[in-house]
């Protein structure tokens, strides 16, 4: 066992974990079940989290590698009392079907909008390229990214 010390969703944590454990498992076994396991090879994106602000696949990241860093999971992006505008946009655009890939896509959109407040459809495609979805055909997911960007811009413009 090794000691894992990091900031998770803004809170410092200190967990004992096996040296060979991947971050997906560490997060899930500590109740952060919004991070999903879909392929465990970095291909589907269901396990995406933010590591020091950039999107990574937690299934191909040893938890030990993330120790000492800042981690944000889907639970840290918004909650039922204060959903993030991206989460609302996925709901309103009809982008949520089975919802298994949705947390990863929300994380990816969050990372995209942090870098690029006005993404084109093509930017959105690239941002979601590593997020396999078998339900939606991506059409409404791309709509959701655009809607989230519009709403974020409108909110900033109004402020």
């Amino acid at each position: 066992m090794i000691q894992f010390e990091a900031t998770v969703n803004g809170r410092p944590v200190r967990w004992d974990i096996p040296a060979g454990e991947f971050l997906t498992e560490t997060l899930r076994s500590h109740g952060l079940i919004g991070t999903k396991r879909g392929c465990e090879s970095g291909d589907c994106g269901a396990c995406a989290v933010l590591l020091d602000g950039v999107e990574v696949n937690s299934c191909v990241l040893l938890a030990a590698q993330a120790s000492g860093h800042d981690i944000v999971t889907i639970e840290g992006i918004g909650d039922a009392r204060a959903p993030h505008p991206i989460q609302e946009a996925f709901v309103d655009a009809g982008a949520v079907q089975c919802g298994f890939c949705t947390p990863g896509m929300v994380v990816a959109t969050h990372a995209l909008l942090a870098d690029n407040a006005a993404p084109t459809r093509d930017d959105a495609r690239h941002a979601l390229a590593g997020h396999l979805c078998r339900c939606t055909g991506y059409v409404k997911c791309l709509d959701a990214v655009e809607l989230a960007a519009e709403r974020t811009a409108a909110a900033k413009g109004g402020a």
Binding site: A80, Q87, V96, G99, P103
Partner: peptide, 11 residues
Amino acid sequence: RRVDALKLALG
């Protein structure tokens, strides 16, 4: 809105 969409988007 789908009855289950928000909770799924929240993880």
